[in-house]
Computed example of a mutant assay.
Amino acid sequence: MTDSTALQALADNGVSIWLDDLSRERLTSGNLQEVIDTKGVVGVTTNPSIFQVALSDGEDYSEQVAELAAANASLDDAVTAMTTQDVRDACDVLMPVFEATKGLDGRVSIEVDPRLAHDTDQTIEQAKELSALVDRPNLLVKIPATVEGLPAITKVLAEGISVNVTLIFSLDRYRAVMNAHLAGLEQAKEAGKDISTLESVASFFVSRVDTEIDKRLDAIEGDKAEAAKALRGKAAIANARLAYQAYEEVFSTPRWKSLEAEGAKPQRPLWASTGVKDPAYPDTMYVTELVAPGTVNTMPEKTLDAVKDHGEITGNTIEGTYDEAAQVLDDLEGLGISYSDVTAQLEKEGVDKFEKSWEELLAGVQSELDKAAR
């Protein structure tokens, strides 16, 4: 439900609107229910940075911190208890959406410890642990799309756990993610699981691509400077549109069709990092330019409000753009900007950023536990 024409138009065009934020205050104040009712939100994503901000802001967690301190909970157990409670409560708020959409939406994501991004076995174990602790059918466990994350995606899906694959930047890695998804469904089916209950999204990061490539374009001088300037702000949308082309290809193959016949659902592309970083660009750009059926757009509330206020939804803005998008990436290579170098750097920075946020979260919680224990 929404009272916004633009947000309703997004939904009508097959885009699921998810909120990229969660906090205890949002839950206890009724704000999460409010954005569901008035802004068409049908899902929630979290990440270590979001939890770090939430747990460092306000007194909403003080009662639980006191209980955990009294129980002599370890730091890792305390953080897990706090984050899984928020996610469990959010799952409960979104359960009517989950039921109304037959499991397609109404989903809430929680990420495995980012320090495990390069450890396949530990990622699998923690994904199973988080699934058991939250214990809700509308949970998605977030696994990063690192090389080590790929077999974890397959194994976790094979265990019957729905997955949100995060930190995808390159088209090659995205294809590997879709392959890992199909392998997971095949293994789940082989193990006798009901694959119709498995849902997965592939979080393809958008704005960070422009941030890095624009920086490289701005450094180009001389006779190529004009051509470089003309490409600013084009790479991220082109990259995402080509990801959608890959999605259309993979989910029309005979391999997929045989799984679909057994009730499997496609792994939807999810546009993440959709808040615009450069004020020179329209603040709704990474929403209005990425409209296509079967997608999810997870937005910080600032972006959501911008779309609600002045977003112009003109129908499918991906269909028919693939040649133009491929040309953008070719032109970048022609200017000496290496796509593979950019995407590898962004993946490393993404993992590092989440790890830093997690360390800050741990330090903040430890401080609160120490205070409560005095």
Results as ranks from 00 to 15, higher is better:
17 I>A: 03
88 R>Y: 10
133 L>C: 06
213 I>R: 01
350 G>L: 04
151 P>Q: 11
51 F>D: 04
319 E>F: 08
370 D>R: 07
323 D>I: 13
83 T>Y: 07
143 I>L: 15
175 R>E: 11
316 N>K: 08
290 L>N: 07
236 A>T: 11
369 L>K: 10
31 N>S: 13
102 K>M: 03
18 W>N: 04
257 K>A: 15
367 S>T: 13
86 D>R: 04
331 D>F: 07
18 W>H: 03
46 T>E: 07
244 Y>T: 15
351 V>E: 01
214 D>Q: 06
135 D>S: 15
164 N>E: 07
354 F>M: 05
308 K>W: 00
251 F>Q: 01
90 A>R: 02
302 K>W: 01
211 T>I: 11
202 A>I: 11
246 A>K: 12
57 D>K: 10
154 T>L: 02
272 A>F: 07
269 P>G: 10
183 A>F: 01
337 I>P: 02
242 L>D: 12
31 N>T: 12
204 F>T: 06
200 S>M: 09
310 H>M: 02
297 N>D: 13
52 Q>G: 03
229 K>Q: 11
223 D>A: 02
213 I>H: 03
309 D>F: 04
194 D>W: 08
113 D>E: 08
33 Q>H: 06
55 L>F: 14
137 P>G: 09
255 R>W: 02
282 P>S: 14
349 E>N: 11
85 Q>G: 04
364 G>N: 15
95 M>F: 14
90 A>T: 10
285 M>T: 13
324 E>A: 15
1 M>G: 13
19 L>G: 05
220 I>S: 00
137 P>I: 14
79 V>S: 04
178 M>R: 02
38 T>N: 15
174 Y>E: 09
16 S>K: 08
137 P>D: 14
364 G>D: 10
180 A>K: 05
146 T>K: 00
302 K>E: 13
107 R>C: 13
28 T>Y: 03
276 V>E: 00
154 T>Y: 02
13 N>M: 11
35 V>T: 14
277 K>Q: 13
105 D>A: 14
159 E>N: 12
232 R>Q: 11
81 A>D: 12
236 A>R: 06
128 K>W: 00
143 I>G: 04
61 Y>R: 05
109 S>N: 09
372 A>E: 08
314 T>R: 12
353 K>Y: 06
160 G>Y: 05
138 N>R: 08
321 T>W: 03
58 G>E: 06
104 L>M: 10
321 T>I: 08
250 V>Y: 00
